[in-house]
């Protein structure tokens, strides 16, 4: 089949390029310092394509892990490989960052920007090629169902809409690693259901890591669960494991929540040696 009228091809060489790494995220004995103490201390984790739910109590090191994966923090020790690049060497941080999407826990923005301006600005910062920016921005808005609010100023948006704008800026560069730190905070139940289906859609081609306190979000939308406590991974399995464990646990309102508390209880009972 010949290309006609300069039409773009439906399948490009880039879209069928093979990946040359086994895991999008691979950490071995990772240690990250925040202030004086190690917030992440000896963490081992290998994540590929899919939606990975990151659970854990406050202060477990979830946000620190997110920040080091977003290349905002530097590891203090251990090995970290993102998309096959070794991060402490950081030879090619710029190329690596083009393939990462990140929604921080404290999502700050410029109130006078419209949603569309804000996402265009983020697309420029992420070095999305200039001619692709308008399409990428519309696609990102469409994905989070914010197209009709594209011209509203950021400061006029409700909490749920702000979160969605945050997700839109994270996905505008079609990242291979997508890091969402507590994206469901401030969403109403209906929006959370829509958000879960967005997560599942994103997770078919992308390594999505979602940190959350809502165990039911993880069970509903994630392909696997990572439970963190005191800077290391306590449990890494599928949501069904969590539900199954919940049959034995005592504290919690749903079987998944009971599974979560049961796992933490067992981990702490063995003195933190998993």
């Amino acid at each position: 089949m010949k290309r006609k009228y300069g039409m773009k091809k439906a399948i490009s060489a880039a879209s069928v390029a093979p990946t040359t790494y086994a895991w999008a995220i691979r950490a071995l004995d990772l240690r990250v310092r925040t202030g004086r103490h190690l917030a992440v201390n000896g963490l081992d984790l290998s994540l590929g394509v899919g939606v990975h739910g990151l659970l854990g109590p406050n202060g477990a090191g979830k946000t620190t892990l997110m920040r080091v994966l977003a290349t905002v923090l530097r590891p203090a020790g251990g090995d970290l490989e993102l998309l096959g690049h070794s991060v402490p060497e950081r030879l090619d941080l710029r190329t690596l960052r083009r393939s990462i999407g990140y929604l921080p826990q404290e999502f700050g923005f410029y109130g006078r920007f419209t949603v569309r301006e804000f996402i265009e600005y983020m697309a420029w910062l992420k070095e999305v090629p200039a001619r692709d920016v308008p399409d990428a921005v519309e696609r990102a808005l469409e994905r989070v169902r914010l197209t009709d609010r594209g011209n509203s100023r950021m400061k006029t948006l409700s909490g749920g809409m702000l979160r969605r704008a945050g997700v839109a800026q994270a996905v505008v560069n079609d990242p291979e690693i997508l890091l969402l730190d507590e994206p469901t905070v401030g969403l109403d139940p209906e929006q959370r259901v829509a958000f879960r289906s967005l997560l599942r859609e994103l997770g078919t081609h992308t390594c999505v890591l979602v940190s959350t306190h809502l165990v039911e979000d993880v069970v509903a939308a994630c392909t696997d669960v990572v439970l963190m406590d005191a800077g290391r991974v306590v449990f890494h399995g599928v949501p069904a494991d969590l539900v199954e464990l919940g049959q034995e646990g005592a504290v919690g309102d749903s079987s998944a929540e009971r599974g979560y508390t049961e796992l933490l209880r067992r981990h702490r009972a063995t003195g933190g040696v998993a």
């Binding site: 920040r67 710029r94 990462i100 990140y102 410029y110 983020m122 910062l125 070095e127």
Partner: peptide, 18 residues
């Protein structure tokens, strides 16, 4: 002072050029 700093710091253009 910059509310969007955390997000901007993780982008490809972050650095001396910016």
């Amino acid at each position: 002072f910059d509310p969007a700093h955390e997000m901007v710091a993780a982008t490809a253009r972050a650095g001396l050029g910016l």
